[in-house]
């Protein structure tokens, strides 16, 4: 018997992965959640039919969204993770013993429960004593916060579903307000390749530019995501992602990674010409 899961990338492109077993499927208050087992990508978390992460390549995404700002900001104590109920970002964060507080805002309690049961290697990080999980709407949570965090990581899947609110100008504005005066905000910035996502890429970049003085985009290669080429946004009130990079300091922390590396850090901000052009398109309006 053959069973295949297809992640729809565009109307005309999909990625199909052969599935050995469907481990879990349920509809929560917020969304439908599925966990699949595959030979090539290991366990796969699927939300509302969209591939969220695979055991095989999640480390790339989670390392890149976490260690880039951590190697720049000299003294991160308070971190806010928006989304991130799978625990991947938190797993990377708790590698830093200087971090004192990690607030995770994940609207869906079922997602956390499912991840802890089926992908404990990732989600058990959420039991760390520094972690507080808030099951509420991200926009509602952020509205009441001011001058509270050193780092905000926006780990929200896509700009079309339940997390749409986390891709808006009002959200970025309230994040700015929630950060300390030298705070950094990192967002997953979609893929620049397919037309629809490229448009979202531009919109996000434009909105963040309107809000933060320093805005740079960096990239990573994530095989299971549409086009495999993924962008992240680095928005900051004070620190520059390259000029303020402390390569030696980060190395001395002795943190184990499989993708991130300070030498790589310097390279990921160098973008392909077509991506530069895409971003410059909205930068010029300013």
């Amino acid at each position: 018997m053959e069973m295949w899961f297809s992640d729809i990338h565009t109307d005309g492109v999909k990625l199909s992965i052969r599935i050995e077993e469907q481990l879990f499927s349920s509809q929560s208050q917020v969304q439908r959640i599925d966990v699949l087992e595959s030979r090539d990508f290991g366990k796969i978390l699927v939300v509302d039919g969209d591939l969220m992460l695979t055991e095989r390549d999640e480390f790339i995404y989670h390392e890149m969204i976490t260690h880039v700002p951590m190697a720049v900001h000299p003294d991160v104590k308070e971190v806010l993770v928006m989304g991130g109920g799978d625990g991947g970002v938190v797993r990377e964060l708790i590698k830093y013993d200087t971090i004192e507080q990690i607030d995770v805002v994940e609207p869906d309690p079922l997602l956390v429960e499912v991840c802890r049961k089926y992908i404990p290697e990732i989600a058990n990080s959420l039991t760390d004593s520094r972690v507080n999980i808030y099951h509420e709407d991200g926009l509602r949570f952020i509205r009441s916060k001011g001058d509270a965090y050193d780092l905000i990581i926006i780990d929200s899947p896509n700009p079309f579903g339940a997390g749409e609110g986390l891709f808006t100008k009002e959200f970025y504005g309230n994040c700015y307000n929630a950060l300390h005066e030298d705070g950094i905000m990192i967002n997953q910035n979609e893929s620049p390749f397919y037309t629809e996502e490229a448009f979202q890429c531009q919109r996000m970049h434009k909105r963040i530019l309107e809000t933060f003085p320093i805005c740079r985009v960096y990239q990573a290669h994530i095989p299971s995501y549409p086009s495999g080429h993924w962008l992240f946004g680095f928005a900051s009130k004070k620190y520059h992602p390259l000029n303020d990079l402390d390569k030696v300091g980060w190395k001395l922390r002795g943190i184990h990674t499989r993708y991130y590396e300070p030498r790589l850090h310097a390279g990921v901000f160098a973008l392909p010409v077509y991506v530069e052009a895409l971003l410059r398109d909205v930068e010029n309006i300013e």
């Binding site: 509602r140 749409e164 609110g165 009002e170 307000n177």
Partner: peptide, 18 residues
């Protein structure tokens, strides 16, 4: 839906700040 209402409220908060 509640999520759009959250957007409106949050936008009003940001708009006031700015």
């Amino acid at each position: 839906r509640i999520r759009e209402v959250e957007r409106l409220v949050t936008a009003l908060a940001d708009l006031k700040r700015r």
